[in-house]
Simulated scan of single mutants.
Amino acid sequence: MRNSGLAKLDGLVGQWSTTMSDAWFLEPPGVRVPGETTVELLGESLLFVRTRFADGTHHSEMSLVIGRSDPNDNYVALYQDDRGVCRQYDMTFGGGHWTLTREDPDMHQRFLADVEQDRILARWEASDDQGKTWRKDFDLTFERA
């Protein structure tokens, strides 16, 4: 039987054309890296999100597994990427907004997104001082393929 809390995320399921832009760590400034994102059900209670970027120069792959703790009425996401990084994020989703946040000893990080039917405008931010100040890492644009 399908998890009713996860059903709220059904609008994310599908194929997305994805663009990374305004990334402080990419040269030259202003470079836009095309990619694709696939969001699919994993069983009845999880979502699997895989994003791949490649433009001949830049290449990256990252994945999320999103689930929901029914007793606590909250979402959680496990993240991994091709650098061997693995992180846990608290997640919110509703009212046209999607957030992922973590407050770990090495850094605080957040993903902030405005969700429309066929487009998601998002950015990743990081803080090295426990959330007192934030810097943008990069922007993401998802458009339904």
Rank of each mutant, 00 (worst) to 15 (best):
M1D: 11
R2A: 12
N3G: 01
N3T: 06
L6M: 15
L6D: 02
A7E: 15
L12P: 07
L12F: 15
L12S: 07
L12G: 06
L12E: 07
V13H: 01
S17A: 11
T18A: 12
T18E: 11
M20V: 07
M20Q: 12
D22I: 05
D22F: 05
W24A: 07
L26I: 13
L26K: 10
E27S: 13
E27Y: 05
P28M: 03
P29K: 12
P29V: 11
G35I: 11
G35S: 06
E36W: 00
E36A: 10
E40Q: 14
L41Y: 05
L42H: 14
L42V: 12
S45T: 05
L46N: 09
L46M: 09
V49F: 02
R50I: 04
R50L: 09
T51G: 04
R52A: 12
A54V: 07
D55L: 05
G56T: 03
G56Q: 01
T57A: 08
T57E: 09
H58N: 13
S60T: 02
S60Y: 10
S60W: 14
E61P: 04
S63A: 15
G67S: 11
G67Q: 09
G67R: 08
R68M: 10
S69N: 13
S69W: 07
P71A: 03
N72E: 14
D73P: 00
Y75T: 09
V76L: 12
A77T: 11
L78T: 11
L78Y: 11
Q80R: 10
D82P: 04
D82F: 03
D82L: 01
R83S: 08
R87Y: 08
Q88M: 09
Y89P: 07
G94L: 06
G96H: 04
H97T: 14
T99H: 10
L100T: 01
E103Q: 14
P105V: 09
D106E: 12
D106G: 03
D106K: 06
D106R: 11
M107N: 11
H108Y: 10
H108I: 00
R110G: 04
R110D: 08
F111Q: 02
E116W: 06
Q117N: 14
Q117R: 14
D118S: 10
D118M: 10
D118G: 13
D118Q: 14
R119S: 15
L121A: 15
A122W: 05
A122R: 06
W124P: 03
E125N: 01
E125S: 02
S127N: 03
S127M: 08
D128H: 03
D129K: 00
D129I: 00
D129S: 02
D129W: 04
Q130P: 02
G131V: 08
G131W: 05
K132M: 04
W134S: 02
R135S: 11
F138Y: 15
R144H: 08
A145Y: 03
